[in-house]
């Protein structure tokens, strides 16, 4: 028994239509039954009235409203978490009194110095081991070994070495920033298309010319990725560094607030950390847009 086409007049319309037109003795090629045409609606007219940005902001706003509701009904006490309204108020007070802005300036300065030092050291080491074989032999192995040490674990040692001033904080950030940059820049240098290097050689570029016009621009996309990782780690390192023996900065504000059970101040500080992180990400994105616009995969703008 084999499965065959449904007989004419069957209750299955799709199959019966085909089989009758094929089997029917009067069927002619131009004797088509009128087709049921379906209009293809352009996507623009199908789009809902509510703009995307509004839909995307709805979720967070609902969450915020819920939070406020829970706080004002007393379900969420201020000892656990302050209400959004209270946080906004405290945030404004902290800015008004200048203590938040000065703390931000201190923290930003720490990150900036640590990032600068880490970038110089990480990129420098990557250049040495990426461009020279002897450099690779001397530098790469120790760096790969040190990389596995969790940098946060070095805080006690750094306090013994550098005291409790700015130096250990900057050192922690520097250390955290150095490794992702090193790894990415090194991989970028080693990943440059050998065909392009050969083309550069055939064009008569000197060794330095090859580095400048072929190797470094080719490593730039990886370097930017490394910078992004580094920025993320820089904030993380900052939080750790500022929780210990700080007498200024956002972390100091937080520690102080903890001692007085001021959850509102703590949340304000967390928001400031998040805001600074977003800002840093925006800076890197802008840098990428400017420096990597030649990339075939580039879709920004």
């Amino acid at each position: 028994m084999s499965i065959s086409h449904a007989p004419p007049g069957s209750s299955e319309p799709d199959i019966s239509r085909i089989s009758t037109s094929k089997a029917g003795p009067d069927a002619r090629p131009d004797d088509h039954a009128p087709l049921d045409l379906v209009p293809l609606v352009p996507t623009s007219s199908r789009r809902t009235r509510v703009p995307r940005w509004l839909r995307r902001t709805t979720g967070p706003l609902v969450l915020l409203a819920l939070w406020q509701l829970l706080s004002s009904t007393g379900v969420l006490t201020s000892d656990v978490l302050a209400s959004p309204g209270r946080i906004a108020h405290v945030g404004w007070d902290l800015i008004d009194s200048g203590s938040l802005t000065s703390a931000m300036a201190t923290s930003l300065q720490r990150v900036a110095i640590g990032l600068l030092l880490g970038t110089v050291i990480g990129t420098g080491l990557a250049l040495v081991s990426g461009l020279f074989r002897i450099g690779e032999d001397l530098v790469d192995a120790p760096v790969q070994m040190l990389r596995t040490v969790p940098f946060v674990g070095l805080i006690p040692l750094f306090i013994i070495w550098f005291g409790i001033g700015e130096a250990p904080k900057v050192a922690i950030i520097t250390l955290g920033v150095t490794f992702p940059l090193y790894l990415n820049v090194y991989a970028g240098i080693r990943g440059v298309d050998s065909q392009l290097i050969e083309a550069g050689e055939s064009l008569g570029l000197s060794r330095w010319g090859l580095v400048r016009h072929v190797v470094l621009p080719g490593a730039l996309p990886n370097a930017m990725t490394g910078l992004r990782y580094s920025l993320g780690i820089a904030w993380l390192a900052l939080v750790f560094a500022e929780q210990i023996n700080a007498d200024a900065g956002i972390g100091f504000l937080m520690v102080q607030a903890r001692d007085f059970l001021q959850t509102d101040v703590i949340v304000v500080c967390l928001i400031v950390y998040a805001f600074l992180g977003l800002l840093a990400d925006f800076v890197v994105r802008t840098l990428e847009r400017l420096l990597l616009q030649w990339r075939p995969t580039f879709t920004g703008r």
Binding site: Q195, L196, E198, A199, G200, S202, L203, G204, L205, G209, H213, V214, P217, G218, L220, W294, R295, P296
Partner: peptide, 24 residues
């Protein structure tokens, strides 16, 4: 001068800079 099977233009340089690359 050499022209390869693949054009081997430096993607990070505009066309005219590619043409002048390596000239003394």
């Amino acid at each position: 001068a050499v022209a390869f099977q693949a054009p081997r233009l430096m993607p990070w340089k505009k066309v005219w800079r590619n043409v002048l690359l390596g000239l003394p």
